[in-house]
Design a protein around this nucleic acid. Structure first.
Lengths: 245, 245
DNA sequence: TCATTACAAGTGTGATCACAAATCAAAAAT
DNA sequence: ATTTTTGATTTGTGATCACACTTGTAATGA
């Protein structure tokens, strides 16, 4: 026993330095990649290698390949016939497909949430609006990362209130899939003149406060449709200009 | 040029000789487990061990653990804090949750399919009805496996026609999650007096034939609700009898 | 007799190695 | 100069090993 303890002493010290012993490395890698995908840190069509990610995340290939497998089944990544994996490319068809699914499922989730949220929960959501105004006030530099994170928190705080353990993972999967698109759109947003995200979110909160499920669904649809419509116009105009050149 | 043609012909022949050379072991394991889950071959709350499955599937632990990870992210399996994995147990809340999601998403899928299916495609679906009658005719032994498979083929042949690469994987995930419940219900069906599945499927085909999306959705909802309602009654009566005993 | 402890078997996790297939680059042949 | 071929590098896949943790059981204590 002592002998093995001596051999293990390195591991033991490492374990003390990293007291988060509960979570596994593969979960950490999975969450890291997930965050990167939702945030749009990877470009569409970018190919990812197991060893490359393992080096970047300071671990072996083992946890990475399991995380990649999980992300592939969620359609957040794509397995090519080469056996290599890449971020799915953006196409108009896929965008419309994703938007339709998001309208369907997230719309249902918020309608459910509207009838179930307590005034207490609504006030929590409402308080998140002020963070937006804060960020808006000191918007010297465009903090796209923070905007993405805040937007995500706002929406999922609502979805969590729908009380469906089935719908929420599906919504997470949809966000994972549309992450790369959204990032492009939000980035283009901050260039193309300030469109007030907070305005749409206030509409949502207003509908939730009076438990108007239909209004909440409509407001949500308007909110999540914006980046898709924006990106669609952008892609179409690009295609048109390429056609004329 | 001729030489390369010759070289390629070898590959071509090899591909013909071993047409399963493309699929990896982990995919085989994943599909195997998936099939078992949808078919309800695993009992709810049953715990699965990596080494046990590896022995049963005649492979090492490596492909199995990747497959389990994928199934866990699809919520087809559940990761306990023990780090062991099990088939999720059945609860009334979860059943209702699953049914609501299936009505929402599969209903939308069939509504889309109704407007997009060609008469050619409808006739393909229609021809599947006769298989049911066949099976019904020689129903000496209750072939639950075949019934489950046939039901699956029928539904997904329709869903595939909706043309959404986003909705279909979600439906697959939902079937994966509700598989263990359904099996229990179908098995109980064949005991509790013949309810005609084919009748509901004929209603669906009839609506699709005239491209009536609303009617198709209604017929589908009636079809997929049956096993859930049946199982709900069963669980409730069991709980009641346990309460009185 | 019952509870606690110590030991043993089992299980998941991560790392490393071996191998095959794919990719790329340079060299050779036409 | 272009194409083909060959060799080296990279990459994914599967197997095996070492370790940590849990679980179950037998031995020891009160």
């Amino acid at each position: 026993m002592q002998k093995t303890a001596v051999v293990k002493s390195n591991d033991h010290i490492a374990a003390q330095l990293a007291p988060v012993g509960r979570e596994t490395v593969q979960d950490r890698v999975y969450l890291e990649l997930r965050r990167a995908l939702i945030g749009g840190l990877f470009e569409p069509s970018q190919v990812l290698t197991i060893r490359g990610l393992a080096d970047a995340l300071m671990t072996s290939t083992m946890p990475v390949r399991e995380a990649l497998g999980r992300l592939i089944t969620e359609k957040a990544l794509e397995a090519l016939p080469n056996r290599s994996v890449r971020v799915p490319p953006i196409t108009l068809e896929r965008m419309d497909d994703l938007l339709r699914a998001r309208i369907l499922i997230e719309g249902e989730a918020i309608a459910l949430a509207a009838t179930r949220m307590s005034p207490r929960q609504v006030s929590v959501i409402e308080s998140m609006l002020s963070e937006w105004d804060e960020m808006r006030a000191l918007k010297l530099k465009k903090d796209v990362d923070r905007e993405v994170t805040l937007n995500q928190s706002f929406h999922f705080e609502i979805y969590r209130a729908c009380g469906s353990a089935v719908l929420i993972p599906m919504i997470e999967s949809l966000w994972l899939q549309s992450g790369p698109c959204i990032r492009v759109a939000i980035y283009a947003f901050s260039e193309a003149g300030e469109v007030d995200t907070a305005h749409f979110h206030r509409r949502i909160v207003g509908a939730l406060a009076v438990q108007d499920a239909a209004a909440a669904r409509e407001a949500l649809i308007a909110d999540i449709s914006r980046p898709f419509n924006f990106l669609r116009n952008k892609l179409q105009s690009e295609a048109a200009s390429k056609g004329t050149s």
